[in-house]
Amino acid sequence: MGSIKIAPSVLSADMANLKGELDKIAGADYVHFDVMDGHFTGNLTFGVDILKAVKRSTDVPVDAHLMVSNPDETVDWYADAGADMITVHYEASTHLHRTLTHLQQRGVKAGVVLNPATPVCVLESIIDVVDMVLLMSVNPGFGGQSFIPGTIAKLQELKAMCERHGVSPLIEVDGGISSKNIAEVVKAGANVLVAGSAVFKSEDPAAEVALLQKLGNEAAQEA
């Protein structure tokens, strides 16, 4: 499977001390950047200027997750601001294939996100194109939610689909990830794990990132 990647979500960080918070996770593989527009989700978070500030403050690649109603029209904002990977929701993107290939042509890795109630089968016609699939293991909108157990079966189904197609996109899971469940999630097929509260609410975020990387890689070797 390769190395397991940890992507701490700045949704759980202290935004009054953004540079200091990012310094604590310098050993992470990605910074997960949640964009919520107050329409697709019931919350409002970060825009382009905050993304630019993140890019100025860290060398860790930024994984921008667009929870917005009009991703087809706004992906370029985040590409221009420096996002290294951009994921858009299947449920919100009218022209998904066009949007993903457009990002790739711009040199940005492109991915698709599925909400908990959206079945994996909808990816059958797009799986050959994507750089990453993100499965939401909570309903999007707020941090600190509990992991939805049905995500495990979805991961297994997604992994089987990738094998049928002979492709190996990154498989990311977002929501309720911690040291307690990371092994199960990795063994089911995930190789990028978003962790917000588990990292930034811990006493030592750097040590928590290292622990999650260690537990994830051990689980991958056993899978």
Rank of each mutant, 00 (worst) to 15 (best):
V120I: 13
V120S: 02
C121K: 14
V122F: 13
S125I: 03
S125V: 06
I126W: 00
I127E: 13
D128S: 12
V129G: 00
V130K: 04
V130I: 15
L134H: 04
L134F: 07
L135Y: 10
M136Q: 09
M136K: 10
M136A: 14
S137G: 05
V138R: 03
G141E: 04
G141K: 03
G143D: 04
G143C: 12
S146A: 14
S146K: 14
T151E: 09
I152C: 08
A153H: 14
Q156D: 06
K159G: 07
A160C: 07
E163P: 02
R164S: 10
R164M: 11
R164N: 11
G166T: 02
V167W: 10
V173N: 06
G175V: 01
G176I: 08
N181C: 04
I182D: 05
A183F: 14
E184A: 14
V186Y: 04
K187F: 02
N191G: 08
N191K: 09
V192T: 05
V192F: 01
V192A: 00
A195S: 14
A195M: 07
A195C: 12
G196R: 01
A198L: 05
V199I: 15
E203T: 12
P205F: 11
A206Q: 12
E208F: 07
L211P: 01
L211W: 09
L215G: 01
N217Y: 00
E218N: 14
E218H: 10
A219I: 04
A220G: 07
A220N: 09
E222S: 15
E222T: 13
